[in-house]
Simulated scan of single mutants.
Amino acid sequence: MATMTEHTLRGLSALGFHRLAYTQWLPAGRGGTRTIVCCHGLTRNGRDFDVLAADLADSLGARVVCPDVVGRGRSGTLANPDLYGYPQYLADMAALIARLDVETVQWVGTSMGGLIGMMLAAQADTPITRLVVNDVGPFVPKAALDRIGTYVGTNPVFHSVGEVKRYLSALYAPFGDLTDGQWQHLADHGYWTRPDGTLGLAYDTGIARAFQTNPITDVDLWPVWSMIRCPVLAIRGLQSDLLTAEIAQAMTERGPKATLFGVADAGHAPALMDPAQLAAVRDFLR
């Protein structure tokens, strides 16, 4: 069975260095024959991919790396929350790829992690050879961003992991029909302990600054999409308000002309823990 280890490196912002944490999964008894990076959504962290990472390491013999984007999980925070944004995230992921010492990677990204993957894949001489975008595309509707803005950065206080679990299972019900154990896993890795002993969600509330200081509008990245040359798999929760059916269909017709995989019991965004979802990613990356 695959084994997981935890690692860190340093990223650099305009105000200095910050810690970046990641987990690395390796197939039993050997190094990976390829490297896959799995990058999470806005308020989540790399441990969301434990099930997928173990599966890909075992089935494909891959090294699978799951970073915590700065401000989330075990990674450090930024002194100035205005610096949270895609320029910083892209620079940090470039530093991660350099640390991994590989010429190419395959990329799996959920929501924000998918946008990071798209932006990296669109660059000249990109190291990304295959891209999976989970419930996100080159057009993000204002209505979906308005919904996300109602909860990101609200900073709820919890007194037990059980309370965290109940909160996450309600807020992220669109992840799909997860088992009790899967919700427990998300809760176990989804909180930070505050100095007073209470619990908070495992992300810096400063990541919400963009939602609080700028008018929320549609995000149009079709020019970025048109620059991607590698094969793309687009996964869509069929109840998603962020990746609509119209946008998903257009993704199969424009730019890299993605292959589309729908998840019936999910919205934004499928958790990539169900066997059918695992198989879709595995077969595409194979």
Rank of each mutant, 00 (worst) to 15 (best):
V37E: 03
R47E: 12
V224T: 06
T129H: 08
R282N: 01
A62K: 10
S59H: 14
R282W: 03
R254E: 12
Q277C: 00
V164A: 13
H185D: 10
C230E: 07
L12N: 08
A2D: 09
G73P: 00
G114M: 06
R130W: 02
V65A: 09
Y203Q: 06
V64H: 04
F49R: 15
F175N: 03
R30V: 00
F211P: 01
V69C: 10
G11M: 00
V219F: 01
H40Q: 10
M227I: 02
C39D: 01
I36Q: 09
G61W: 01
L115G: 03
T179E: 02
V69M: 14
D180N: 14
Q239K: 13
R47L: 11
V232L: 11
A276Y: 00
R147L: 10
F211V: 05
N45H: 15
D177M: 13
D241R: 15
P156Y: 05
L131K: 04
D218N: 13
R209Y: 02
V224W: 01
H185V: 01
G31M: 12
I216N: 08
H189S: 03
D82F: 12
Y151R: 10
S160E: 05
H7E: 06
A202Q: 03
F158R: 14
L9S: 11
T213R: 13
R147F: 01
D55M: 11
G71I: 02
S160K: 09
P156Q: 12
A210Q: 10
A143N: 09
A21Y: 02
G190C: 14
P27W: 04
G85S: 12
R254V: 04
G29W: 04
G46K: 05
C39R: 10
P231C: 13
F211S: 08
C38D: 00
R63E: 00
A95I: 07
L9K: 14
V157F: 05
E163R: 07
G237Q: 11
G31S: 15
V64L: 12
L233E: 08
T205H: 11
C39S: 12
L120D: 05
S169L: 03
G114N: 09
T150H: 01
